[in-house]
């Protein structure tokens, strides 16, 4: 063993903890190297001290054994607490974002569409009432990244040239809603009065409806709009279930890039209050968007709907996403 390697054994000499092999190596090297011998001779004083059990005990008392930190003790350290708090905060934010995004992607028409319900009203008053309750649609970032045109929502109703047509179609649809009671119609008019409608150019008497009645009216009106539910099947197919209001003619079109396929319902069941539940199944691959149209009357060529629009009827576009679509 050379001198540098033997020097590393010096620390074990004074404490008397060298093995026999280490001793032989160290002492042989010390006979060959004077510096090593001198170091060992100097170490003799320390060895003498450490040979005393009392001195050892005193030194050991000054060297307390490091305490093993338990997992609970580790967690209680400030750094660990900060890390845990950060993780918890990130988790809360992540869950909130996930819930927000899943809600934004849900292809179900919600209560916000109450404003589009075919509430009976004079055609000349409709635009004012609609203009008050219109709100800009929320578009998520993922939807903005889609190559397809942004959602059209009901904002299109605010266009002046379509207002008259829409008002007429809604009025005709209202006439076919035979299941709605007179009380509901009366409450609906009261709601319109609350919104601020003007009848005949004269400010109408607008009695405030009680909150419970307002909620009931809104619920009744929500039943009149189609409810679409898009699900992903295990076979790669998508299942679209649309509950359309009574009196409306439902058209469903799947958009694949620049082409449009008109979907035919595999199953159609008559629901309560004259509603119809139609079920469509189609391959999910390649489908960019699914357009729903509910028209007051049937048209001869539904394939012209994407080009000509809903013509005052109901229109909604849903974006099927394989990753986020729920399974049935």
């Amino acid at each position: 063993m050379n001198r540098p390697e033997a020097e590393k054994l010096l620390g074990g000499y004074a404490t008397g903890t060298l093995t026999e092999a280490e001793k032989a190596e160290l002492f042989s090297a010390a006979l060959d190297h004077q510096e090593l011998f001198d170091a060992l001779a100097d170490e003799e004083m320390l060895r003498e001290i450490l040979a005393d059990p009392g001195a050892r005990q005193r030194l050991l008392a000054a060297l307390p054994e490091p305490q093993r930190v338990s997992w609970w003790g580790w967690l209680r350290r400030p750094a660990a607490l900060g890390l845990a708090a950060s993780l918890a905060g990130a988790l809360v934010v992540g869950v909130a974002l996930w819930m927000y995004s899943s809600r934004a992607d849900r292809p179900v028409v919600e209560m916000a569409d109450v404003r589009t319900a075919p509430v009976p009203a004079p055609p000349e008053n409709r635009p004012q009432a609609k203009a008050v309750v219109q709100a800009p649609p929320k578009v998520s970032k993922r939807q903005e990244a889609k190559p397809i045109a942004p959602r059209e929502e009901k904002v299109e109703l605010a266009q002046p040239d379509q207002l008259a047509l829409r008002a007429r179609s809604e009025a005709s649809a209202e006439n076919r809603l035979t299941d709605q009671s007179a009380e509901v119609k009366q409450k609906a008019r009261e709601v319109r009065g609350v919104i601020g409608g003007v009848v005949g150019g004269v400010p109408a008497f607008t009695p405030a409806a009680p909150p419970t009645a307002l909620y009931r009216i809104a619920k009744e009106a929500a039943r009149a709009v189609p409810i679409a539910n898009l699900e992903r099947m295990d076979s790669g197919q998508a299942r679209l279930t649309v509950t359309s209001p009574a009196g409306g003619v439902l058209y469903v079109a799947a958009r694949k890039g620049s082409t449009v396929d008109l979907l035919t319902a595999q199953q159609s069941i008559a629901g309560p209050s004259g509603t119809t539940e139609a079920r469509y199944e189609f391959p999910l691959a390649g489908v960019d968007a699914v357009d729903l149209y509910v028209l007051p009357v049937a048209i001869s060529n539904p394939l012209t709907l994407p080009a000509n629009g809903s013509g005052g009827g109901y229109y909604r576009r849903v974006y099927p996403d394989e990753k986020t679509l729920p399974k049935p």
Binding site: G12, T15, T17, L18, L60
Partner: peptide, 20 residues
């Protein structure tokens, strides 16, 4: 007492009679 944690641990183990 002025040594680092590792050095104190080594010295403590040596005083307890542990070999390298």
């Amino acid at each position: 007492a002025t040594l680092g944690e590792r050095c104190r641990e080594i010295f403590r183990l040596k005083l307890q009679g542990l070999s390298f």
